[in-house]
């Protein structure tokens, strides 16, 4: 014991002198409250391109979404398809940071869609390796078809499990098992239930620009159908390639896709043009997010 005492005293003196700012910093580190480090912004918006992404609108925020798809690029009579424009307007609300509800209307089939999306799991450095969001929607096709169709038969339901991982700051990938149920399929010979699997991803070229892609494979032979007048209908899988540019409150998504519809019923189930025929369309999504957080106003002045 005696042998160690001088040594101990030496260390004690050293210790009290050596207490410096770095040690204070370490003390603070020990005291720091533990917070989960969730992966932020796996995707920039609530859509990859056509497909929903795992992202939801945050609480007290509203996303105003304007989507356009033009006619096929090989339609020269309509100036590369630009004379034909289809549109979806969406109002999408964050109820909590994990739950969002949205309503949209598209001029394709005069369809109104409502949907809900809930973040089941969030990817975290020290937690889940993936983010999982559940999606459910109902689409009401309101266009007059010249025959009487009951309200029930105008409806289509969609449910999806969106599973995504942000592999790095730049690269995110999503897989989206999908189940569509059409009470009255558009084409004769098509089944009410349709399974599909989507894959989508983004790669960031810079802080504000990324390239995106999404694709939906459908579990059916797309060649076997006829429309209600007896002509053959061929369905194709929807593929979209595009660029995301984000500028602060907006996300601009510009892309090419063979799908015309902008809800799951239409782009997954009813895409009739194909990349192979050159029937690709230019399209864009513009998202503008508004905050209804009351603090936004009260914090407006430095006090």
């Amino acid at each position: 014991m005696n042998r160690y005492l001088p040594l101990s005293l030496f260390f004690l003196t050293l210790a009290s002198c050596a207490w410096a700012q770095d040690d204070l910093s370490k003390l603070l580190d020990q005291e720091a409250p533990k917070t989960k480090n969730y992966a932020a912004a796996t995707f920039k918006g609530t859509r990859i391109i056509n497909s929903h992404s795992v992202e939801t609108v945050k609480a007290k925020h509203m996303d105003f979404l304007i989507q356009h798809r033009f006619g096929p690029l090989n339609d020269m009579d309509n100036f590369f398809g630009l004379d034909i424009a289809t549109l979806r307007l969406g109002f999408e609300f964050g109820i909590t940071d994990r739950l969002m509800l949205g309503i949209g209307r598209t001029n394709v089939q005069k369809a109104v869609d409502i949907f809900g999306k809930y973040r089941l799991l969030r990817q975290a450095a020290d937690g889940s390796p993936v983010s999982v969001t559940v999606f459910g929607s109902a689409v009401n096709k309101t266009i007059d078809e010249g025959v009487s169709v009951s309200f029930q038969n105008r409806l289509t339901y969609c449910s999806q499990l969106l599973i995504a991982r942000k592999f790095s700051d730049d690269f995110s990938l999503q897989i989206s098992p999908t189940f569509l149920y059409r009470n009255r399929p558009e084409a004769v010979g098509d089944t009410r239930a349709l399974f599909a699997v989507g894959v989508g991803g983004r790669y960031k070229l810079s802080k504000r620009i990324s390239i995106n892609a999404d694709y939906y494979w459908t579990a059916r032979d797309g060649n076997a159908f006829k429309d209600r007048f007896g002509s053959a209908v061929t369905y194709h899988n929807a593929l979209a390639l595009g660029v995301d540019i984000e500028t602060g409150g907006h996300v601009f998504q510009m892309h090419f896709t063979n799908a015309m519809g902008m809800n799951e019923k239409q782009f997954i189930g009813e895409t009739t043009s194909s990349w192979g025929d050159g029937a690709v369309r230019y399209g864009f999504n513009i998202s503008r997010t508004f905050s209804f957080d009351r603090r936004a106003r009260s914090m407006d002045k430095p006090n």
């Binding site: 204070l24 720091a32 917070t35 409150g249 957080d293 936004a296």
Partner: peptide, 17 residues
């Protein structure tokens, strides 16, 4: 001696975007 530190991610904005 004075040390002040904070996690940048804990800054809370009224606008989440």
């Amino acid at each position: 001696d004075l040390v002040v530190q904070m996690n940048i991610k804990q800054f809370d904005f009224p606008n989440k975007l």
